[in-house]
Structures are given as C-alpha cells and as structure tokens.
C-alpha cells in the first residue's frame, strides 16, 4: 500500500518522533508505515487521518 505520510508530515514540519508522540506509538512504527514496510490497523489509520484532518483515502492508496 502506498501512502503520503512523509509528505503530510513534512507539510506540518513534524519529525518522525513528533508524529510518533502524537500517535502514542514508537518512532520505528512511523518509519515502518512511511516506508511501506508495515500497513497500520484501521484504528491507527483513523488516528492518522484525524491528526492530518483528512480522510484515510487521502493518506493511503492501493498500489494497484
């Protein structure tokens, strides 16, 4: 799954650690999601969407 997390984070000028703190997860989790190594669960995806004031579809998209 592709995602725009790195772009959205850069727009807010947040570091991975800043985002991780707000999501209450580890920095490694944010990095794994950004690099596509890990797809988050629905609750975490909703949390991301709320944090960036957007929809899940605007952050994540199917690679196909």
């Amino acid at each position: 799954m592709k995602n725009r997390l790195r772009v959205l984070r850069a727009e807010k000028d947040w570091s991975q650690a800043d985002l991780a703190e707000q999501l209450e997860v580890s920095r490694q989790s944010v990095n794994a999601i950004e690099t596509g190594k890990y797809d988050p669960s629905l609750p975490l995806a909703f949390k991301l969407a709320r944090l960036f004031e957007t929809t899940i579809e605007a952050i994540f998209s199917d690679e196909n």
Binding site: E24, V25, S26, S29, P40
Partner: peptide, 9 residues
C-alpha cells in the same frame, strides 16, 4: 503492548 508495530516485531 499498545504499539501495534512493536507487537508485530
């Protein structure tokens, strides 16, 4: 463990 990625690890 609340961090789902760390749980997976």
């Amino acid at each position: 463990e609340r961090d789902e990625y760390i749980r997976m690890v």
